[in-house]
Nucleic acid binder design. Sequence first.
DNA 1: TGCCTGCGTTCAACC
DNA 2: AACGCAGGCA
Length: 762
Amino acid sequence: MAGVVSAAPYLDGLNPEQRAAVEAIDGPLLVLAGAGTGKTRVLTTRFTHILAQGKAWPSQILCVTFTNKAAREMRERVSELIGERVEGLPWLGTFHSVAAKILRIHAELVGLKSSFTILDTDDQLRLLKQILRAENIDEKRWTPRHLGHLIDGWKNKGKTPEKLSSGDGYGFAEGRGAKLYRIYQSRLKDLNAADFGDLLLHNLTIFQKHPDVLAKYHAKFKYLLVDEYQDTNVAQYLWLRLLAQRPDKSEQNLCVVGDDDQSIYGWRGAEVDNILRFETDFPGAKVVRLERNYRSTEHILAAASGLITANKDRLGKTLWTDDKGGDKVVVSGVWDGAAEARVISSEIENWFSKGRKYNDVAVLVRASRQMRSFEERFIALGLPYRVIGGPRFFERAEIRDAHAYLRTVKSDTDDLAFERIVNVPKRGIGAVTVQKLQMAARAMGVSLEAATRQLVKTDEIRGKARTALRAFVLDIDRWRTAGADLSHTELAERILDESGYTAMWKRASGRNGDPKAEGRLENLKELIQAMGEFDTLEAYMEHVSLVMELDTGAADDDKISLMTLHGSKGLEFPLVFLPGWEEGSFPSQKSLDESGMAGLEEERRLAYVGITRARERAEIYFTANRQIYGQWQSSIPSRFIDELPAEHVEVKSDTGYFGGENNMAGGYTGVSESFVDSFDASYTKPRSPGWNRYQQNQNKTIDGSATRKPTRKPSSNFKTGERIFHQKFGYGHITNVSGNKLSVAFEKAGDKKVLDGFVERV
DNA sequence: TGCCTGCGTTCAACC
DNA sequence: AACGCAGGCA
């Protein structure tokens, strides 16, 4: 074999650890791959190696990732490596897409037809809402969202209703949680639908109840590769274990690659435990650690590594790099969110003026709503940018409406789709009529559409509603007939046109001047175009359900990338900006409230992921004032800032931040008065006077938008004896001002403290 | 039935 | 700040 290996050009340039991970193709293998250690390269090379060794055909390798992005990249890189021999890689994809593929084949084993629809979150919530109503449960107290979380949680754990233990769901609606889950699952079956969690869950059921089916997959998949193993939840873990552990213990060729320090999906059920337990689950597993970082300079790597050591729950790795020196990680304090966007934008302009690319630059935010201030600033300055993630194309109302039309025409049992569009555009069919239809459907045990066809024949529904419903079912019939002769894009165009849906938005755009309508019409055009890239409507719909994003295509455009920290995993950029490092935002208060220390550690891993995206330079920002829920609040810099090793950090604060363990600010340098807010001409529809009681108290600008300046002053202005308010400790008065430090006696705590954050004058 | 208005709630990340 | 919901009214 040695001869074969040395003749393999794809192995050139691998370091010894990488090479070990690639060549150990038989038996279970755990690759602990730190950030920037060439994980994807190892996975793709290993894939290639298996093929080159003649151990398996491409169709015999199961390779799963979490994101479509990762799957796409794997596919491209493997294709590159193996050149023209590639005959498609049918079993390379996300967990959900592979599971969906398997479920389509065996759908009847769990009571579905292979044409089942995949429900998105919105459909799921509407269905849950209906169920709660039908069960006479107060949806204010027990919200559909709440129930949805509960059910998703069970599905993530691999629990079908039968597998719930007696205490499960006890806390929901007086112990009715489990029953509601059962009802929900049976409704899904009636609707011939599956939600995201079901894709995996049904797979488990099939594998567990039908060993013959499982045996087929054992025979089929000779090798299994798993990316981001630290992010697998229990259901995914069980799924992999079923596929990998053959009854005769032969050929457990499962290779998992992961990094416990980059586990950031605890909220969706990821269990870091899975990776910690691997050697127990698969006795005799080899373990390879990749610790040489090829991505970042020394300071960046050291800053991130220092931060992550604050986490208790980790396997521990020591990343190293040959790339000594470089820029320290920059930490800057700014006045508010607008200033943050301004400063970062001008840094980017600076970077560009030095001959670097916008493509080199990423702005990574904690939550997608933080993107807005950056978008506004980029637009104002004419900086090119792309948003990765964020509000998804396929989640927009107009796109879902269009899909609902297509689903209705394709299936006469898709109640959720039918209900969505029966009165869109308005046809004079109100809530009362829809209610009647639902009751009739339930009574007759048929679909909404079938019930409608029945009811328009009787006098149950009269007048305008009856006429409208009649016309509507006739439309559906006509579209179904037309569908036989037309391509799916032509059909879609025709439906949108004849239903009056496009016209509805055209009207809105013309008369009311609704500025969003124009965009919606463009989205609809884009939708038709996207459909054209698929051969059939079914293929398109599958893509929509599982991918939920449009290929943003043209990566050759030079643009700044704007995305969430979660969305940035697996990417790298020479220059990375990390705004919004304030307590409450990052680490997210919600995460701390819900998950305590585990939540904090996950937030810290997220910080680690953020910093390690940077190749040359990372800049962290925090603000003194931030608007939260429409209210100005003072901020406390994130504790993660204090946890960065000081010798790898350069502080550029100009907001009066003081204190902290690193005593990093070096004092207040004054807020520049020359900040000029860019004029925000964004249109908001005027509502009734006093539509928001907060707004009544606010000043109005000429465009009607509300402004209220932060009440906070930089701390250096304070004098002994002054009464102040501190976000964390409440009211108190200043006992001493000395250099950068304020000593304060707090009323509530009753003791003196040296402040570590911003204060408010009262 | 549908629009207007006021009130109350929510506001993390992804497939 | 942005939405969803419900009650009042045309």
